[in-house]
Structures are given as C-alpha cells and as structure tokens.
Amino acid sequence: MNILDIRNLSIEIETSNGPVRVIDKLSLQLAEGEIHTLIGESGSGKSLLAKAILGFINPRWKITADRLWWRQYDLLALSRAQRRQITGRDMAMIFQNPGTYLDPNSTVGEQLRESIPSHDLPGNILTRRKQIQKRAEELMHRVGIKDHDAILESYPFELSDGVAQKISIAMAIAHRPKLLIADEPTTAMEPNMRSQIYRLLAKLSAGDGMSILMITQDLTAVIPESKRISLVYCGQLMETGPTEDVMREPVQPYTGAMLSTSLFSSETKPKSRLPTLTGAIPTLQHMPIGCRLGPRCPNARRACIEQPPLRSYKKHEFACHYPLIEVDSHD
C-alpha cells in the first residue's frame, strides 16, 4: 500500500524570464515502512519536492498534480490549517546542516524535551516531567548516543556535525512520525560518520515501520536498505524502480551516466578518463524545452524537444524517447 502517492506534480515559480516549471510532472510513490532514495544533482528540485510534501509552500507558487495523497488525505484539497496539523502529526524532516536550525541559545536537552509531545502523557506535572526526561534519554539511545547526560547538557555549537545530526534525528522522531524526509543528511560529512547516520536511519525504519524519503546528490549514497530509487534531473523524473533493477539494468541515459561516472565500477582503470555528461546543469532561466537532459544527452535526437511520457520496462518506469535498452512500446 502506498502511503504517499504523487502523480504528475508540477510546481511553477516566477523567474526573471517568466514562469518556469521547477518541478515538471514528477511522480513518486512511497510504501509504508519503505526507504526510497531520491537522487538528483543540484537544482533538480529535490528540496522543493520535500517542501511540497510537507506543505511548506510559498502561496505564489503554482502547484498542480493529478494526485498528491498522503494516506487517505488528498493534500491539495485540504486547508492550510488542516495540512499543518497532518504534517505536524505524521511527518518530520532532517536537513543537511543540523547546526543551522538547532537553537544556539538553549541546551540540547531543552530542545529535545520540547519536541516530545506531552499532552497525552498521564499523571501530574512532576510525573510527566520524569517521563519526558526518560523518553529523552531513550531517544538518545535510539540514535546511538551513549553519554546522554553530557550531551543533553551541551549547547549545539559544542557538538560535532555527526552528533548534531543524530540529535536532529532524535528530535525529528520524538513524535513518532510515519514519514521522515532526510534532505542530504550527510553531504560534506566524513565517510565513517556518513555510514553511521545511514545505518541509523535504516534501523529506525525497520524498527518502527517509518517510511523514509532519502534525498541525495549522489548514487554513492544509496544504502542497501533503500529498496527503491528515483532519479530526477531539472525537475523531471528520469527513471524510478527497484534499486537493484535500476542499477543493474539502467534504461534511461541519465541513470546510465550517473552510474558510470560514480567511481564504483570495478572496471574503472586508475587515471582513466571518467565517462560523464558534457556541459553544465542549466539554470532555471534557461531550461531546455522537452526532455531537459537534451543538451547534455548522448542519445538526444529531434524528438526530444517533446517531453517523453513515463513508460515501463520490467519493474522500472522511465521517461525517454531513446532508451539505452530496446523497450517494446505497447502504448
């Protein structure tokens, strides 16, 4: 069952060159308890998609979708207040720089305790406070922090990036959300810390049945627990499907390029020139028409000035007129 169902979501933003679809007919489904990794280079609209799901939207943006459903709710049909309520209850998000949104003036403990919902706790103020403290310590253990006393007493600037990110995860899961969106949570972190954070997220999802939308720039950050991935480029969905299938048999030229450019292939000879896309990522003001990969795509031909529809191949879906693999089209 899909807990999150997005079909053909578009977000239009006003630029100096007129309105631009920053997100262009993007579809994404997330099942309960699933980890789904969204991969895209900068400007592909990853953070904007996260904001659209959470409802943190600028009223001037034009948002349209065939479907934007969270559980049984049609999010686009809800009022702002209703959406805020659902987001607050069911969803949470962590960001790239945890330091920037932790309050520098209060201790980690104060901030963590504040994020624990207290209204449904039994007892009087005193017993509640005890329960909250206990829950705070429990959350610290869950995110793998053992010396909780010291950390709870410290201020955010005293923490390393990794610990700060763990705290932000503890705060995010304090109200037991059903969906966690992790927006590039480990970019610029050292690899050891990076895998610790990813392992932690995977454990949380497995333990609580929490769904996680993992957002990253880079195929190298996809963890084995992420059973599905989607690749986006300049706001358009390029390919989506089960992680293993997509990686073993990429259909879309963008997926192919991202795979061969990430240095993990055992065939990469040291000092050889890496295969990669030519050219630069277009700016918002100069989006190509049709398939936005066009100017950088090795397979591009004239038909690519029309945006290709989403088609399926085995268990993946992809959007491309000239895929890497011959695909029967029965549509």
């Binding site: 050891n192 895998s195 996809v222 084995p224 992680t243 292939s265 055992s266």
Partner: peptide, 20 residues
C-alpha cells in the same frame, strides 16, 4: 583500512549482487 574502505561498506553499488 577504514578510510580507504569506508564508502564501500555501506553502499549498494559495491554489493556483490550488483557488481557481477
């Protein structure tokens, strides 16, 4: 050892199922 193998430890791209 850690620094040179850290990335591959937790990544699908280096998992045996993918790298035939």
């Amino acid at each position: 050892k850690n620094l040179l193998h850290a990335e591959s430890k937790h990544n699908v791209l280096t998992h045996s199922t993918i790298q035939e």
